[in-house]
Amino acid sequence: MSPITIAAVKEQAGEIPIHAAIHAQLQSRATRTTKGGKPYFELVFADSTGNFSLKIWSDSPMSEAAETLAEGTVVRLEAEWTQNQYGVNPNKLWWYNLEDAAIADFLAGDPETREKQDRDFAEIRRLCDSIEDPRLHGLCAHFLSQLGDRFRRTAAAKKNHHARRGGLVEHVAQMMRSADALCPVYPELNRDLMLAGVLFHDCGKLWENSYPEDGFAQIHSIHGEMLGHIPLGIELVNKLWNDLVDSVETDEWKGLKPSTEMTRLHLLHLIGSHHGQYEFGSPVLPRTPEAFALHYIDNLDAKMEMIRDAYSQSTEVAPGIYDRVFPLPTNLVKPLAAFVPPPAPPASDEPADEPETP
């Protein structure tokens, strides 16, 4: 049986079981206890398309194997898979460790996901190259040159949206497309600042949600845990900025308007305010048109990804109504299909009647 991806299982599984195999890497294992005192293992498995968690109960035939399975191990999971609003559930589950050749194939990633992320990274480069302000242009180029590889294997979140290796590239590329499209609609927006702000708004996640070069299990970083991605992002941009300021090529920046210091400050404000609210982790609220726009573009792209995932994973509880999928607040309803114009009437082969002669 050929393996399928985690994303495919989420899309295909429902109330009716599907028998399928998955190649996945153990991302984390935790020992937990139900309210009734029953112990179980919670295992999180990941591949290039996403992750899911499985509960292995203490009386399960796989309990002993779960207890000894090391994080980072790549296994073949085979089961009859179902899915409800709480996630994916395996019946008759078993697994075994993959051999070296199969592991190498797995670590190469799903070809479709890899191709999409390659296109998205090329789009990010194209839009960064279109920035006219030499300071922001140079900063983006410096970041992609120094940290492009790490950027390409970072997730946009630990869960909920773009939670996969390379997910940050997908998220940033889509946000940059949105920002580029909105700037002509709202001419008060500074396009150069918007594009640079999108690139850097989550750059601290390179230490909060990064992945190794040879796996799909997210790395736990002490810096990410203790500081979070917003302070890390501000620190990183300051470092990259100072790298450029110290170079001889930036002497010409001294006469540019707006000033170099105000340009740096506005970019840092976008990073600090992009969550939009204090309770969501922003140390400062949006105070400029670009800061408001960036916050809403970020929120929109995250929500659209959650909605896309929810439609692919949830089951219909009634015609056109789907189970609620966390973290969305409600059940989804089947979207309205695009309007299809009626077909044009067939052309007649008969010549038109000649007008009568008076």
Rank of each mutant, 00 (worst) to 15 (best):
S63D: 15
R165I: 02
L107F: 04
I307D: 09
T288P: 12
R191C: 06
I22C: 08
A108S: 12
R135A: 12
W95R: 11
P286D: 04
K239V: 13
D120E: 13
R125N: 14
R119Y: 11
K205I: 05
P17V: 02
D251V: 15
E78W: 04
E354A: 12
P289Q: 00
E112Q: 13
A157S: 13
L43S: 08
G255Y: 04
V325L: 04
W57C: 12
E279F: 15
F216D: 02
E249L: 08
L193W: 07
C128G: 10
G37Y: 05
P319T: 00
E170V: 07
A46E: 09
R76I: 07
Q83T: 10
T260P: 11
E115W: 00
P90M: 05
P111M: 02
V9R: 03
N238P: 09
S58T: 08
Q218D: 09
G166F: 00
G148A: 06
L300M: 15
P187D: 03
T330C: 11
E208N: 09
M176W: 03
D251A: 15
D180K: 10
N331M: 10
Q218I: 09
H275Y: 10
L147C: 12
Y40M: 01
P134Q: 03
V75H: 07
E71M: 12
K38Y: 08
S282D: 03
P3N: 07
S63R: 09
K334L: 07
G228N: 02
Q12T: 05
G276Y: 01
D353M: 14
D301N: 14
W207R: 10
G215I: 00
Y296W: 08
S247K: 10
S58M: 09
I131W: 01
L268N: 02
L69V: 08
L206H: 07
M176L: 09
T113I: 12
D298P: 15
V172G: 08
P212K: 04
F121I: 01
T68S: 11
A8G: 13
A344D: 14
D251T: 15
R264N: 10
A24Y: 05
Y278S: 14
A318M: 05
A173W: 02
L268P: 12
E316T: 00
F280M: 15
A108R: 07
D47S: 04
M176C: 09
M176S: 05
A13P: 01
M194G: 06
Q313L: 08
R324V: 01
N91Y: 10
A101M: 12
A163P: 03
A122H: 11
V44P: 07
W241G: 10
A181F: 10
L26Q: 06
I219N: 14
H162L: 00
L268S: 09
G255Q: 05
Q117H: 13
P212G: 11
F151A: 07
R119I: 11
P184N: 01
E188W: 06
R164C: 08
M62C: 11
